[in-house]
Design a protein around this nucleic acid. Sequence first.
DNA 1: ACCTGAACACCGTTCAAGT
DNA 2: ACCTGAACACCGTTCAAGT
Lengths: 253, 253
Amino acid sequence: MTSRTDKKSQRRADPLTRERIAEAAVELLDTAGERGLTFPALSEHLSTGPGAIYWHVSDKRDLLGAATEAVIGTALPAQPAPSPQAQPQREQVHAVALALYDAIEAHPWLSTQLAAQLSRNPWGPVTARIFEGISRQVIALNVPAHSWFTATSALMHYILGAAAQNAANAASARELGPEVNRASFFESVSQAWQELDPHTYPSTRAVASHLSDHDDREQFLAGVDLILAGFAATYPSAAERTVAQPPRRPDNS
Amino acid sequence: MTSRTDKKSQRRADPLTRERIAEAAVELLDTAGERGLTFPALSEHLSTGPGAIYWHVSDKRDLLGAATEAVIGTALPAQPAPSPQAQPQREQVHAVALALYDAIEAHPWLSTQLAAQLSRNPWGPVTARIFEGISRQVIALNVPAHSWFTATSALMHYILGAAAQNAANAASARELGPEVNRASFFESVSQAWQELDPHTYPSTRAVASHLSDHDDREQFLAGVDLILAGFAATYPSAAERTVAQPPRRPDNS
DNA sequence: ACCTGAACACCGTTCAAGT
DNA sequence: ACCTGAACACCGTTCAAGT
């Protein structure tokens, strides 16, 4: 494990690299949250000085980018060949969606960073990896070429937005105490919504009263299916690919 | 306009209020960007000290929240009565979607703040206003009650995500010089994507090659229509509401 | 009740100096 | 080439003191 220059006076056990720094940053972000990632804290974690970090990373944005890249890289591994048609199409879409969903739930800070990458760096590796994962499905779904971008966008924005929302809910629920399950969290949000002014917020109140204690992942996938149904309905060529499956309940009831 | 105590020694022309502070914050955010909103800058803008601002606002998060509220309040005015069926349903959805789209394009910092509000404060006025605007459409669309939340989520996340993406693109294009139009911006992104590794990013490259020089708003609405089509296909009761319209091209070609 | 402005704690970033 | 750590600029927040 130690390097070949195994003298007693080697500078450090293992030298700093952008990757090691990214890992440490992820750890800090997961542990202490977005506010917990500071150069002083990270320096101490790596037992070095802030200057050393700046040698490998250009600034804090770059540091956060490296952390994001590290997580996305393992959550959405590069798949060279358009994956074989082993799974039915719908399940492949679900797999990509859930990979992102789980990554964001495990690292709540990720949702902010992904949004930042999307907007700041649409040609960066993070954006490309996500876009690739989703557009591959869209193409396989026989969406016509002129609509690839629209369809991918719709799916991607829903996935990232809903996953972020779920992660935030999970974090809020966690704050209410580890013993409280999701049910009581939804209960409390539902209740807060019910207390809105009936005159200005009639529909929100109505929706709140129908917020069943659903399974979050099922709910998330129901949204994905809703958009897939939109593809099938809008592009006849895409229809057989998704609709030919055994008809699945599109939502909880 | 001046208060009743109209002595020469009144402390200031107009006293600070949360609203005046929010307005000034919006101005700073629009002018100088997210990084430009600092307490020193805001204090000077209002010709006061930082302490005065803290009397009306609890901290910076609250300050940003007030700014967000101010913008959303005018972009999405409260509509007491479920708006009359004057317009066809699809156009009402478009109207809400475009209101958010335009607000985000005019205030690019808004997209980050809306995401923050959604996750931190799901029961706050900003979230409620947006949710109300969209869920009202979903309900009017005859989506069944147990799917109101899913359907509203799908539409909302797409709208906010796509609008944010557009605002970011617009900002990037602006940076390339005021004379460059959107076309050349899309050209450059498309080109950057084309240079990705063909082995790992085949689909992204394929999509890039079909990135026509579209109208951004049309593209955005095409995505909305895609999701509406999903409603119609998934919930038979919703079908006649959206499908009965003169069939509109769902996308540019 | 509302405002003033100095003071404090803290963080991102730089840089001359080391190995 | 890579690391050290002190120093700087700047910002969020507080607070004793004013009106």
